[in-house]
């Protein structure tokens, strides 16, 4: 219904002064494609444009929650750009506006914003790519996590049974030093948090000597639902190759066949699937 469109639009206006200017100067272009009635457009434009910017700290407050979730990535970005504005521009980005108008996730849109900046080479810190991918994996899992009733396992697992990750579980492959890089960043943030004003000093600690990007070696990680959100665990390459197939529902037979195509033996694939079902990383669907 169009009043939902109007409600989403108000959020965009409350966050983005540039967008406010665009809407008031050229409403036909700014509101093009939105399901709004003439009356709704008129109501919107009847509001004093200055009213939208009453909360000058809204962007900073919201950025704080994004930074909490993408702690390592945003630290790398700020270390490289030395500009808060780089992060702040997210609120005027197509990713932000699209996520609000389509009732999406602002956190995941923020990850996409940074990712695109890296792809476009506006960000160049080599460690950023995988750090951001790992933080995005966790952010996605947090959002997908939901309590479900897991179907009890039968005594014998027939290979025509369908399996899938439980909501909030997933796997990823990252350059081998990704976790080490995040740990280094966390240590740095811990130090500056002891006395935040120290960042104003020329001799304040800087984020330096990050572990090099390991181009040949990889680490394999699994995100699993935990009591307070999600947690990460190290897994073997074979686990990764078998489990990644369970991102979408498939039969055990199909999962084993695909794993065998990646060089995993049938018995190892069976064992990995059985263990993941027992540990409720996978479930029967």
């Amino acid at each position: 219904m169009s009043y939902h469109t109007l409600q989403h639009l108000t959020v965009r206006l409350l966050f983005d002064e540039k967008f406010v200017k665009f809407v008031y100067e050229d409403p036909d272009s700014a509101l093009l494609g939105l399901d709004l009635s003439k009356e709704e457009k008129a109501q919107l434009l009847a509001i004093d444009s200055r009213a939208w910017s009453y909360d000058s700290l809204r962007r900073l407050r919201t950025m704080r929650s994004l930074v909490e979730e993408f702690k390592a990535s945003t630290t790398l970005v700020l270390a490289e750009t030395r500009q808060l504005a780089f992060l702040d521009k997210f609120f005027s980005s197509p990713q932000f506006h699209d996520s609000i108008q389509k009732r999406g996730s602002m956190g995941l849109a923020f990850a996409e914003y940074l990712s695109e900046k890296f792809r476009q080479k506006e960000l160049k810190t080599p460690q950023l790519a995988d750090v951001l991918r790992l933080e995005s994996l966790m952010a996605r899992c947090r959002r997908e996590f939901q309590k479900i009733r897991v179907t009890p396992l039968p005594k014998t697992l027939k290979d025509d049974l369908r399996i899938k990750f439980v909501p909030g579980a997933d796997v990823g492959a990252f350059q081998a030093n990704t976790v080490l890089t995040i740990q280094k960043i966390e240590k740095y943030l811990f130090e500056v948090n002891l006395m935040p004003a120290m960042v104003l000093c020329d001799d304040a600690p800087r984020l330096m000597d990050l572990p090099a990007v390991e181009t040949k070696k990889k680490s394999y990680l699994m995100c699993v639902p935990a009591a307070n959100g999600v947690s990460l665990i190290d897994i073997e390459k074979s686990d990764y190759l078998v489990l990644i197939e369970a991102r979408s529902s498939l039969t055990i037979h199909q999962a084993i066949e695909r794993a065998m195509a990646s060089g995993i033996t049938k018995s190892i694939a069976q064992e990995i699937i059985a263990r993941a079902l027992e540990e409720q990383t996978l479930h029967l669907v």
Binding site: S2, Y3, Q7, G104
Partner: peptide, 27 residues
């Protein structure tokens, strides 16, 4: 009205009034 925009997730909290129309009343 609305306590968050979009889905209920971190960073989305923002208290907003309803759109004062009959469609919103019915929902």
């Amino acid at each position: 009205g609305r306590w968050h925009f979009g889905r209920r997730e971190r960073g989305h909290q923002m208290l907003m009034p309803p759109i004062l129309c009959m469609d919103s009343v019915l929902e």
